[in-house]
Design a protein around this nucleic acid. Structure first.
Lengths: 346, 346
DNA sequence: CGGATCGATGAAAAGGCTTGCAGAATGAAC
DNA sequence: GTTCATTCTGCAAGCCTTTTCATCGATCCG
């Protein structure tokens, strides 16, 4: 049988309230008593019963984290960030994997949110309405998805797209395909919209929208042939996994990257440096995103003033590697006469 | 404020015990009352308070999963298996990441094991003694590590090594290096020992032990140069990540795989098919391993007869891909006169 | 028709902990 | 020596649920 607070109290010769206080609010108890109690507790191997505490305080000391796919290193890293910060704050974290299924997502969050202090919902796949319903049930923060009135940690998708596009345009690319990710993905919708608006704004740029594809290697394989058929010189893939699948298929068909076609991804997952050529991609500091989400959640839980929205968006960085090069057929002159609207100033 | 069992009781005009029974043991309550209560409960949005239930039953309805690195897809997939089975059984799962640190591991398991019904400890990095101490504190099952007296789910490392070795020998390789993983890793020790015993048993085989290296891409990069210098024709890497790092470094040095050197991994993680050449590796059904671990844990928790040990070891499969080929310098004759002890019978 | 049997229900205790409130003890001030 | 302020400690209520035990009514049988 586990040792309880009253065992410690008996052993130390004090009341259970004193034990409770000595452990939880040490400053409320006299020095001598405090050390006696703490000593006894440790010696007896006392560990507070979280359930009992939770029953009274209404807090569980744990948070939930819901992700679409634990095996995807994108989420693995975010989870690590959440983990780390939660542990620092004395919180344990439930993790649930929804297998990219919006209905599982709703069910899981629903089942979790009442038995934890709050939930971090990562790359939510559900509709805005579903997510609002969920948020009404308890403290919820969104990662990689933005919804007014709900605390959201996002990264700068528009900036990321702009960086990629400038890079490609500078290399002489004018016909660019987007290998789209799942329609349920908010970041896919953001990127697609940003691409469209940029390309619409510059007359000499044509955007070919392909997809949607599943956000995996297989999606990229599928996209590759369509991209080739469309005649573009560069493909922006929804994420690194799709980009890698794309490059694999291109290589198997004897199409060279970047000589024949340039390819870019998003996320900077480990796989982006495993492949050859290494992938040009956009880095998102996922670890710090995970940490921030816990901070935001705890702000709600403890009713603290939340972070200003500006600091909620984590910065991005374009990582130029070997998968992008000068556009096929583009003379060097192209590089010297970039599209005024999108070329880097230097 | 949350709706409690007594709210439901008042609303339905019955006692709280009846509500409790109608929900938890429906057969103990009259048909009419049961449906009334269930209806009222649903209508009011009642959700039982797990903490209160746990206080009385002594069960939390949750289990813990502790892994060295969540970002590693090897563990990601195991986690998915654990996840899935736990959810089936109505359990939620705490996941903790130890960052490959044995002391964090001990601390985390220690902190977790009293507040869950049991813990699945994956690829434990601690010493045998540490793990035994942990197991004494509560229900614990080991995954990818074997310890007498503690329920363990493992895969057949010896069989895996044998399969790899037979494959390499059949291709004419006689000088083989092992790029070892962390000393804290049980499977690394198993594989190293199995390799040694096989090579010792066949006089014409020489084994070069390299390492130890961290179980990541970077470890493989490091190992590559040592492997080349050692003059071997094949390298068995501790896992796929190391193998991929190895191949990357070889490619950068202009050494061809498999023409100059053959490379194999273990685990069959997604990265093994992202690289070119695709990696020859050994597949472990990690998902089913995760599921089995939950079954084993629940067997302990519910005091059921545990699975027989034989079914605790999950089968393996050698996946031959393009990273292994005929040994450099070996004539075709070698393939026709394989070492009797290790060549496949066909 | 009385007693036994059975099913359905309710009352109440228990589980470990926190916390408001009150009491005891100590010390200081007069 | 008395009074008051100030700590420190203990009592007891309460958090929400499960579960034992008792009660009640009804059914059944002799």
């Amino acid at each position: 049988m586990a040792v309880t607070i009253r065992d410690v109290a008996r052993e130390a010769g004090v009341s259970i309230s004193t034990v409770s206080r000595a452990l939880a609010n040490p400053e409320q108890v006299a020095e001598a008593t405090r050390t006696l109690v703490q000593h006894t507790a440790r010696a007896m191997g006392y560990r507070p019963n979280r359930a009992a505490r939770g029953l009274i305080t209404g807090k569980t000391g744990s948070i939930g984290l819901v992700v679409p796919d634990l095996e995807n290193p994108f989420f693995g890293r975010i989870s690590k960030g959440v983990q780390a910060r939660a542990r620092q704050a004395g919180y344990a974290v439930f993790i649930a994997d929804t297998d990219e299924d919006p209905s599982v997502e709703a069910e899981v969050v629903h089942g979790l949110i009442k038995q934890v202090d709050g939930v971090v919902l990562c790359s939510a796949r559900g509709t805005d309405a579903e997510i609002r319903d969920l948020a009404a049930e308890g403290p919820l923060v969104l990662v990689n998805r933005n919804l007014p009135d709900i605390p959201s940690i996002t990264f700068d998708n528009v900036g990321a797209v702009e960086a990629v596009l400038r890079h490609l345009v500078a290399l002489g690319h004018r016909e660019i395909a987007y290998a789209a990710g799942p329609l349920t993905s908010w970041s896919n919708r953001e990127r697609a919209a940003a691409l469209k608006s940029f390309c619409d704004a510059s007359p000499d740029l044509t955007l070919v929208e392909l997809g949607n594809f599943p956000p995996y290697f297989s999606g990229g394989v599928h996209a590759a042939d369509l991209a080739v058929a469309s005649g573009v010189t560069a493909v922006v893939a929804f994420n690194d996994l799709v980009a890698v699948g794309l490059m694999d298929r291109l290589r198997r068909r004897g199409i060279r990257v970047p000589d024949d076609i340039s390819v870019t991804g998003f996320d900077n997952v480990p796989a982006s440096t495993l492949v050859w050529p290494n992938l040009t991609t956009v880095d998102f500091p996922r670890m710090s995103m995970g940490r921030k989400s816990v901070d935001a959640l705890l702000d709600i839980v403890f009713d603290r003033a939340p972070l200003p929205d500006a600091t909620r968006q984590v910065p991005i960085e374009l990582i130029v590697r070997e998968s992008t090069g000068v556009a096929r057929g583009a003379g060097a002159s192209v590089v010297r006469e970039p599209d005024a609207a999108h070329a880097p100033s230097a």
